[in-house]
């Protein structure tokens, strides 16, 4: 990272620490804001947060890796998360998974080479009555069919 980038990051984290307080209880909200702004929480950001909250970097790393929606590495532009829990599974999750893999040309857990799409399973999205469900960034798509998946992806690709 460039020094100027690190400085902006530090400033940003400092203002977040000011906003939420300098205790360890502020860790999660700070992580969430950094995640929203940068799409991931870099190792520099993790160490800066640790320093400003007076905790150890490895504790920040432990929390970041605990939550699926906090990332330590750069993510794709569109993060596609398919619900893998039982009610979605019963409503043809596997068919949706195959359609996604075929359309995007990547497997689950992978990122496309142009860093545009990533594919991952998640635990319950809370859409059990409308399964199968998936999440693209913050948008929920429910009652999916393979055909619907193709349409959604076409829409995104057209953007």
């Amino acid at each position: 990272m460039l020094v100027s980038e690190i400085n902006t990051l530090t400033e940003e984290i400092s203002s977040l620490v000011e906003k939420y307080g300098a205790g360890r209880q502020s860790l999660l909200p700070i992580l969430q804001e950094i995640q929203i702004r940068y799409g991931h929480i870099s190792d520099v950001a993790q160490q800066e947060i640790a320093r400003l909250l007076d905790i150890h970097p490895v504790e920040v790393y432990g929390v970041t890796t605990f939550y699926s929606f906090l990332n330590t590495t750069k993510r794709a532009k569109y993060n596609i998360r398919l619900c893998k829990t039982i009610s979605c599974d019963l409503t043809n999750k596997d068919g949706i998974a195959r359609a996604l893999e075929r359309e995007l040309g990547i497997k689950f857990g992978e990122i496309s080479s142009d860093e545009k799409y990533s594919l991952a399973y998640v635990s319950c999205l809370g859409m059990c009555d409308q399964g199968p469900a998936m999440l693209i960034n913050n948008q929920v798509y429910s009652k999916l069919t393979p055909r619907k998946v193709v349409e959604i992806l076409d829409q995104i690709k057209g953007r």
């Binding site: 490895v58 790393y61 432990g62």
Partner: peptide
Amino acid sequence: LDAVNRGYDTKITTFL
């Protein structure tokens, strides 16, 4: 050292 990841994937490891 701290515990990272969750559930079955939990392990005790260092920063990054």
